[in-house]
Design a protein around this nucleic acid. Structure first.
Length: 733
DNA sequence: AGCACGCCGACT
DNA sequence: GTCGGCGTGCTC
C-alpha cells in the first residue's frame, strides 16, 4: 500500500474509535482507483497495515487468526507478539448515529504484520496496543500451536497457560544485563552414572542428547540437575527444568545458586506473587536470564536458544495441567526438544512407563548407575505379607508384626524414622476377611467404605450398612487393612514415648527434619527430607495403593515407595525399609530389588500387548447420554481407530469424582470437583478412542475438527453438543 | 460466550 | 401492522 492511500479519504481526527467508521476493507482499498477510498476518519499504517491477531478467548471453538487494520498511530507499537485489544463479536462494524455498537473489547496477541488480508469482508481496526512488550514470540507461538494440536485444544487455551497475565509494574522495570556463559562444570556426582560425564560433556559441547535418567536415591539429584543446567549454559544456550512442586523447585533453586551464583536463573512457581512471577518471566523472555526452574507452568517459559529441557519426577500427577487442554509437562518438553532440537532429560528416582517407552523406541538413551552403585545407595527393603501377619499372632493384636517394630526401634537409635501412611480421607476398598469378596452395598452393589471404624457406608448411594455380612460366605468380619494405618502410627508414637512424633501431610507439609531420632509420620508425597537421611522407613499404605482398580496402581505404588525409600540412608549405612505388602506382587519385588526401570519395562510390554497407553494413544470423549455416539460417528476418525463404548458414567456423588473425565490423580477416594467433570446430577457417558502408535496426531486432529464442525466446545452453548475431549486420560480403570 | 438477525404469535 | 419470542450462526 502506498503512502498516498492513507492520506486519502476523509481527514483523520481523534483516536482509534474514529476508525469505527470503516466502510471498506484494507484489501479493497488496495484496488487501484482514481480516488481510492479507505478509512473514513483515520489513516492506516503505511507499511503492513494488517495485523493478524489471535484472540485470547478460549471458550470459542474458533481456532483461527483474525485480521485487523492497523491505524497509523498504532503502527509502531503493534509489532508481532504484543498484546492488543480488539473489537470482537457480531456487529463490530455496525455504526449507528456516529457511534460504534456491538463488538466487545477483548484481548489478543499480534501474530504477524501483513501487507494484506485474505479476509473478504471489511476489517475492523485494532482498538489499542496494551503494551509494546512482545510477549508472544515466534517460538512460543509455534510451541503453543503444537501443544494445541497434540491435545485437540485451541491455541487460545494454550496461550492462557503459556503467557502470564500482564503486570505493568513488572514490565516497567528493566531486566538485568545478561551474564556471559559460565565455565563448564565438573561432573561431580554424575560420575556415579555410567554415561553421566558423557551426558554433561555433550551438553557443554553444544550437543542435544536425550536421556531417561534413573536417579540414585539420596539428596544429590538437585545438584545433578544444576550441573546439567550449568553445562548447557556453558555451551552458550539456555536451559529449563520443570519440577512437580514448590519444595522441589526450592531445592533445585538452591543447587543452581550454589552452582552458578546469584542472578543466573529464574524461579517460576505459583508461590511468588503475580508481579514477581511476571518479572522473572520477562527476564527470561528478554534474554536476561538463560536458565529457568519452575513448576508445570514453566514448561512454556520462553527461554532463548534453548539447549536443554528437563523434567524431574515425571510420574507426579502435578505435571498434568488441570486446565484445558490439560497438557503434561513431559509431553510438552518432548515437543520442545523435538522442535528446538535441544537436549532432553527426564529424571526421577522412579521410572514411568512413558519414560521407559522413550528408551524402548530409541528416542532417548538410559542414564543409569551401575548395579553396585545402586546397591550401596539404596536401603535394604523387607516385606511383610499376609503370611507373615498370619503367622505372627502377637503382631496381629498389635496390628504390626515384630519385624516392623524391630526396624523402627533400631532405626530410632541412630536417627529419624519415616512412617508413610495413606492420605487422610483415603477410602479403602473393603472386603470379607475370610473369603476376600469385595464388600458391596445390598441396595445398589456399590463399594462399601468405612469413614470411621464401626461405621459402614456405601460409596455410591451413601446408605448405611448395619449388620453387614458377606454374601458369599456369611462371615461378618471385614478386612479393614488400611483403616488402622493412621492409628498404627499413633500407637507407634505411644510405644516410644521418649521420641518426638512429627507429622507431614497435605495441609501441613514439613520441608525437612533434623538428624535426631524422631518418628515422622507422612502421607505419600509430603515426606520431609531428613538431614543425613532417615535411619529407617515403614511403608504402611501398600494395600491402599495396590488395591485400586487402576491401570497405573502398581506403577504409582512403586513410585511412592521409591520416593519415600530414597530419603532413607543407603544399605551401607544401615538404612532399612519395611513395606507392608505382599512380596509376590510385581511392584513390591521391584522395590526390594530397587529396579524401577525393569518394572516400567515390564509394564510397558504388557500394555503394548493389551493395547493400552502409552503404547496406544487414547482419547476420552464424554458428554450427555446419547451424544457421544453420534459425535464419534460424525468424526472422521483415522481408519485404525477403535472406539470403546460409550458407557454411562456413574452418577456424580457430592464430593466424589467421576472416573475418566476430570484429571483425577492416583489418590483415589473423595476429591473436589474440577474443570472437566460433568455437571452434577446430569447423566453422562464416555467413550474411549484408541489408536496404534503413529496415529495419535491424526486422532487429535479428527476429534478437534469434529468438535469445531459441531459447534462451540464448552457446555451451555446454544444447541451445540458439549462433548469433552481429553487426550491421554490419566485414569482409565 | 455474546450478540444480532430472523422468522413466527399476541398486542396497539 | 409492529413488538418481541428465542432458535441459528457469526465473530476479522
Amino acid at each position: 500500500m502506498s503512502s498516498d492511500d492513507k492520506q486519502s479519504g476523509e481527514p483523520a481526527g481523534g483516536g482509534p474509535e474514529q476508525l469505527a467508521l470503516i466502510r471498506e476493507s484494507v484489501r479493497e482499498a488496495k484496488v487501484p482507483r482514481a480516488k481510492p477510498r479507505t478509512w473514513r476518519g483515520a489513516a492506516l499504517a503505511g507499511e503492513l497495515p494488517v495485523a493478524r491477531v489471535v484472540v485470547n478467548k478460549g471458550v470459542l471453538h474458533l481456532d483461527q487468526f483474525f485480521d485487523y487494520a492497523v491505524p497509523e498511530e498504532l503502527d509502531e507499537a503493534a509489532q508481532p507478539g504484543v498484546r492488543v485489544r480488539v473489537r470482537f463479536g457480531a456487529g463490530a462494524h455496525r455504526v449507528r448515529g456516529g457511534r460504534r455498537e456491538g463488538g466487545r473489547l477483548i484481548d489478543g496477541f499480534v501474530v504477524e504484520r501483513r501487507a494484506e488480508s485474505d479476509y473478504t469482508g471489511p476489517l475492523a481496526a485494532l482498538a489499542g496496543v496494551v503494551s509494546p512488550e512482545p510477549v508472544l514470540g515466534a517460538g512460543l507461538l509455534g510451541l503453543a500451536r503444537a501443544v494445541a494440536d497434540r491435545y485437540a485444544g485451541s491455541l487460545a487455551d494454550v496461550l492462557q497457560l503459556a503467557v502470564p497475565p500482564r503486570n505493568a509494574r513488572a514490565e516497567a522495570k528493566p531486566s538485568p544485563e545478561p551474564l556471559p556463559p559460565p565455565a563448564a562444570p565438573e561432573a561431580g556426582t554424575w560420575e556415579r552414572y555410567v554415561n553421566g560425564p558423557a551426558f554433561l560433556g555433550a551438553l557443554a559441547g553444544g550437543g542435544a542428547p536425550r536421556a531417561v535418567w534413573t536417579a540414585l536415591p539420596g539428596p544429590h539429584w538437585a545438584g545433578e540437575l544444576a550441573r546439567a543446567v550449568a553445562a548447557t549454559l556453558a555451551s552458550g544456550r539456555g536451559a529449563l527444568v520443570v519440577v512437580p512442586d514448590g519444595r522441589a523447585a526450592a531445592r533445585v533453586d538452591a543447587a543452581l545458586t550454589a552452582q552458578l551464583g546469584e542472578g543466573r536463573h529464574a524461579h517460576l512457581t505459583a508461590e511468588a506473587g503475580p508481579e514477581k512471577r511476571y518479572r522473572e518471566w520477562l527476564a527470561v523472555r528478554r534474554g536476561s536470564v538463560r536458565a529457568v526452574v519452575g513448576t508445570r507452568a514453566a514448561m512454556f517459559a520462553p527461554v532463548r536458544d534453548l539447549g536443554l529441557v528437563a523434567v524431574w519426577d515425571d510420574g507426579d500427577s502435578s505435571h498434568s495441567e488441570p486446565h484445558a487442554p490439560q497438557p503434561h509437562a513431559r509431553e510438552v518438553l518432548e515437543l520442545r526438544a523435538a522442535h528446538d532440537k535441544c537436549a532432553f532429560l527426564v529424571g526421577g528416582t522412579g521410572c514411568t512407563v512413558e519414560a521407559a517407552q522413550l528408551v524402548a523406541t530409541g528416542w532417548a538413551l538410559p542414564l543409569v548407575a551401575a548395579r553396585d552403585q545402586v546397591r550401596t545407595a539404596a536401603p535394604l527393603v523387607r516385606t511383610i505379607g499376609d503370611g507373615d501377619l498370619a503367622r505372627d499372632e502377637a503382631a496381629r493384636a498389635a496390628r504390626l508384626p515384630s519385624i516392623a517394630w524391630q526396624a523402627v526401634r533400631e532405626g530410632l537409635r541412630s536417627g529419624p524414622v519415616l512412617v508413610q501412611v495413606p492420605r487422610r480421607g483415603y477410602v479403602p476398598r473393603l472386603s470379607c476377611e475370610r473369603c476376600r469378596t469385595p464388600a458391596r452395598c445390598r441396595h445398589c452393589a456399590g463399594p462399601l467404605e468405612a469413614p470411621r471404624e464401626s461405621e459402614l457406608r456405601c460409596g455410591w448411594c451413601g446408605r448405611d450398612q448395619p449388620g453387614w455380612h458377606c454374601a458369599e460366605c456369611g462371615s461378618d468380619r471385614l478386612r479393614a487393612r488400611i483403616v488402622g494405618a493412621r492409628r498404627t502410627a499413633e500407637e507407634l508414637g505411644r510405644a516410644f514415648p521418649a521420641v518426638p512424633v512429627r507429622t507431614s501431610g497435605r495441609d501441613h507439609v514439613l520441608d525437612s527434619v533434623p538428624a535426631r531420632p524422631a518418628l515422622v509420620v507422612s502421607t505419600p508425597g509430603a515426606e520431609p527430607v531428613a538431614e543425613g537421611g532417615y535411619a529407617a522407613a515403614l511403608l504402611l499404605d501398600g494395600w491402599a495403593m495396590l488395591g485400586r482398580p487402576d491401570l497405573r496402581a502398581g506403577e504409582e505404588a512403586l513410585r511412592r515407595w521409591i520416593h519415600a525409600a530414597s530419603l532413607v540412608r543407603g544399605q551401607s549405612e544401615g538404612g532399612t525399609v519395611v513395606v507392608v505388602a505382599e512380596p509376590t506382587l510385581r511392584p513390591v519385588q521391584a522395590l526390594v530389588r530397587w529396579d524401577p526401570v525393569g518394572h516400567a519395562r515390564r509394564e510397558l510390554s504388557e500394555r503394548a500387548e493389551l493395547g493400552f497407553p502409552p503404547v496406544s494413544r487414547m482419547a476420552s470423549v464424554a458428554g450427555p447420554l446419547d451424544t457421544v455416539g453420534p459425535f464419534l460417528a460424525g468424526a472422521d476418525l483415522p481408519g485404525d481407530a477403535e472406539v470403546l463404548g460409550p458407557v454411562p458414567l456413574a452418577v456424580e456423588q457430592p464430593g466424589r469424582g467421576v472416573g475418566g473425565v476430570g484429571g483425577a490423580g492416583a489418590g483415589g477416594g473423595a476429591r473436589a470437583r474440577r474443570p472437566g467433570d460433568p455437571p452434577v446430577g446430569e447423566r453422562w457417558e464416555r467413550a474411549l478412542v484408541r489408536v496404534p502408535p503413529g496415529s495419535g496426531a491424526a486422532l487429535a486432529a479428527a476429534l478437534k475438527s469434529a468438535r469445531a464442525a459441531r459447534g462451540a466446545a464448552g457446555a451451555g452453548a446454544g444447541g451445540a453438543v458439549p462433548v469433552r475431549i481429553r487426550i491421554d486420560p490419566p485414569d482409565i480403570g
